[in-house]
């Protein structure tokens, strides 16, 4: 009986300790961004890696997401005889929900795993220890530029996703299924408000922070050997994706 209580207690304590370490990690990284963001070239390199190199995968997923939204939306709306609203359906679902979430998930898969593996390998080959020995702040070189680059890149990728998706929906809805192009864009402009665009941007900024934070953290505290790195990378991708989806729900309920 006491054995179960002991197990439960140690589990709770280790969970709390882990959470505390993660929050500390995040706030220290954010604090460093404010205090000394580091050389611009480091940040530019990270923006190229997280943002610019994700462009094509975002473009591809966005166009197919928009196209399938056009197809599904048309099928549903045609039942009510209101195909003209297709533009609103595509634009609102992209801008409010799918754009931020899907772009965050794609960036997690493409850049997040790489970040985690990169830092994890630096950890197991003792490069991080070497930095610490030379009294150089490892956070400043490894973590802060990545967090800042993710904060800059994610909203941009999200708006690219939205626009490409809207034109993907246009391609299918108007060119293929024959919705009136004027109605498509007019209904869209009428129903989308600044609040919708704003909430999408807020979401993608927070997703950027989550991606860089969790992936850097998991890599930074990777276990021993090649197995440790592989475990850290898997944990980083899974945890980031789950956190993005959970945080998305709470953010939507607050921003709505």
């Amino acid at each position: 009986m006491l054995f179960i209580a002991e197990k439960l207690g140690s589990l709770t304590l280790s969970l709390l300790r882990e959470m505390g370490r993660m929050v500390n990690f995040l706030f220290y990284a954010l604090f460093l961004i404010v205090r000394s963001p580091g050389k611009p070239v480091h940040i530019l390199k990270q923006i190229r890696f997280i943002g610019a190199k994700s462009f094509f995968v975002i473009f591809l997923t966005a166009s197919f997401t928009g196209m399938v939204l056009g197809l599904q939306g048309y099928y549903t709306l045609a039942k009510f005889g209101s195909e003209g609203l297709l533009g609103s359906v595509v634009a609102l679902s992209l801008i409010r929900e799918l754009g931020p979430v899907l772009s965050a998930l794609m960036v997690t898969g493409r850049a997040g795993s790489a970040i985690s593996a990169e830092i994890g390998i630096m950890r197991i080959t003792e490069q991080i220890d070497a930095l610490e020995t030379m009294a150089l702040e490892p956070y400043k070189y490894l973590v802060s530029p990545k967090v800042l680059a993710a904060i800059i890149s994610l909203p941009l990728l999200c708006s690219i996703f939205d626009v490409v998706g809207i034109y993907g929906g246009y391609l299918v809805g108007v060119k293929l299924l024959g919705v009136n192009p004027g109605a498509y864009f007019h209904e869209m402009e009428k129903s989308v408000e600044w609040k919708d665009v704003y909430s999408g941007i807020v979401k993608s900024v927070s997703f950027g922070i989550i991606i860089a934070w969790v992936c850097c953290y998991k890599g930074y505290f990777a276990g021993h050997g090649a197995e440790g790195v592989s475990r850290a990378t898997t944990a980083a991708v899974v945890m980031t994706s789950v956190m993005v989806l959970i945080w998305d729900y709470f953010l939507t309920s607050v921003l709505l």
Binding site: I95, S159, M188, E189, V192, E193, W194, V197, Y198
Partner: peptide, 8 residues
Amino acid sequence: YLSIKLGK
């Protein structure tokens, strides 16, 4: 585009 054309 999003904020000016759609977000008005």
